[in-house]
């Protein structure tokens, strides 16, 4: 194979990753800065983290965000999995083109349009705006991402496994819960995590669809960021980054172990057979 680390490859990768990670690293470092100024290093301190816990508004917003993300991600995963099943398994039916268009369009739709259109819907049907309107809006736009993730897995797994289940007497519903769902489970979990993260992250759609009663963390951060860089925002950002990084690292480590184990077992089985 000609796959190796040449000087060109190493330079390209190092520079690319430097660009991706240096801004984040700086943000993390300055969250421990004792000084309030961004350019001056005033010594190590964790006082900004301690300050966060006392900031009740921020804690409230964080709690709201987590609840919105949890509920909307769960709804999005159920709906997205159904949508993926419709796209991959249901064959042709009237209106299929419209359906796949509606699933894929939100992926690239500017958030300002999605946000505005959902808000106008809630106004038109006189739905009280607040926590639940954000949940509905987030479930709608994240379900499309969930559908794409599950669809990718569904379309590359062997359809015959489902046929085998039905041949052995399992009804379509039993087949889905006993065979299909366990097999696509990793992608369903990824879909949930993606929907959860997208919801945690969203500023624009939440700003449009919320009412006076609910403020999410990104909205809170946004209103403070507009006033300038503060170490407090650095601190909360660092916590969010750490949260996600640990999650992604664990997930990818588990996938890696899993793949390695499957590979090892398969080799052992082949070796034993020969």
């Amino acid at each position: 194979m000609n796959n190796r680390f040449s000087w060109f490859n190493v330079t390209a990768i190092v520079l690319g990753f430097a660009f991706l990670y240096i801004p984040i690293l700086i943000l993390v470092i300055y969250s421990f800065n004792d000084s309030k100024l961004v350019t001056v290093w005033g010594g190590f301190s964790t006082k900004w983290y301690a300050g966060l816990i006392e900031n009740e508004q921020l804690m409230d917003a964080a709690w709201t965000t987590l609840r919105v993300a949890f509920i909307s991600a769960t709804m999005a995963t159920v709906l997205g999995t159904m949508a993926a099943l419709v796209l991959v398994r249901m064959g042709r039916f009237p209106g299929r083109t419209l359906f796949s268009g509606m699933i894929f369009a939100p992926l690239v739709m500017p958030e300002v349009i999605t946000g505005l259109s959902l808000l106008l819907l809630f106004v038109a049907i006189n739905f009280d705006r607040g926590f639940w309107t954000i949940v509905l809006a987030h479930a709608t736009f994240t379900m499309c991402f969930a559908a794409v993730v599950v669809q990718a897995r569904l379309s590359d797994f062997d359809h015959r496994v489902e046929e085998a289940a039905m041949d052995l007497g399992a009804s379509p519903v039993a087949t889905f819960f006993q065979v299909t769902l366990p097999i696509i489970a990793p992608s369903v979990i990824s879909a949930w995590l993606l929907a959860f993260t997208l919801s945690l992250d969203d500023l624009v759609i939440a700003s449009f669809t919320t009412g006076p009663s609910a403020t999410t963390l990104p909205m809170k951060i946004y209103s403070q960021v507009r006033l300038g860089v503060t170490p407090e925002i650095n601190a909360i950002s660092t916590i969010m980054i750490a949260f996600v990084t640990v999650g992604v690292l664990i997930a990818s480590y588990m996938t890696k172990m899993q793949t390695a184990r499957v590979e090892r077992d398969r080799r052992a089985a082949d070796a034993a057979a020969n």
């Binding site: 801004p23 960021v225 690292l249």
Partner: peptide, 21 residues
């Protein structure tokens, strides 16, 4: 994984990081 990781971290925070720079 290292390319995808920033995508999982908040968009808002990543934009914010550049203000200080």
């Amino acid at each position: 994984m290292f390319v995808i990781l920033p995508f999982w971290t908040s968009f808002l925070i990543r934009v914010y990081a550049w203000i200080g720079i």
